[in-house]
Amino acid sequence: MKPPLFSYADPESLQETLELLAVRGDTAKVLAGGQSLMPLLNFRLARPEMIVDINRVQELHTLAFSDSAGIRVGATVRQRELERSSALCTANPLLAEALPLIGHFQIRNRGTVCGSLAHADPASELPAVALAVDAEMTVVSRGGRRIVPADDFFVSYLTTSLAADELLADVSFPPWKTQDGWAIEELARRAGDFALAGIVVRLSAERGTCAAARIVAFGLGGRPQRMTATEQAMLGSTAGEAIAEIEQAVRSEVESEGDIHASAEYRSEVAGALAGRAVTRAWERAIATGANA
């Protein structure tokens, strides 16, 4: 199939982009990497009247690493660009582990970090990572800018809190605490397929016991889900302790939808099992940093 008719704009400034969105936002779609939008256009499942291609907007192509401010990723930065940054492993090892899981390298060569966040596919890894690390989205429009925490940004299936005239200009991942443990696990029938279920874990330990935990499940419902009850139950636990209980807790806490690929019950069960693996690996890393032996 082929894309439907649309008019095309490729502005070269952010201001021009926001002008276009202010006027045509209701019936326009922003094109960055195109790895999610182009399939929809090819199948004519989306029929925007206008495509606003932001790939020529230099201001959106920033990628900055800073010890104090973390990582700031502009809207047109490719997933591969971030993946290949030499600074990434230390700046955010969770992102470093998550990025190669996204699709295939050919997809990541064009797909953007912000595009994945704005598209909000429930099976995507990046929204779950953003939620696990409390990333902040910079949302801009002709009328101004606002900072949106990840938890408020993701609403439901393919839906974020972006208004029709707004653009996700960049995402900020906070500075990583070197003593933290982390892990991401996902299950897909083939590597690169949409995950049937996935778990992201971030773990802070003090003197060998869990001081803070973040467990985010993805691929199961409309948006990444924080397992807050399980996170609470983990406080004070030690490495390897109560893994079976954590698995059970996640299995009960998570809200799953079924489809022809997998039933809801199966997904919840997988989520539990992945949580066990992810927590175990997160502990190994937390301990390996030496701060918590």
Partner: peptide
């Protein structure tokens, strides 16, 4: 497939392997 999954359309754009079915010619 024209949705980026099968890879049969892969070409190099500025040296990077990409899906030509997911790029507009104007890009």
């Amino acid at each position: 497939c024209e949705q980026g999954v099968c890879g049969a359309c892969t070409v190099m754009l500025d040296g990077e392997a990409v899906r030509s079915c997911l790029l507009l010619a104007v890009q």
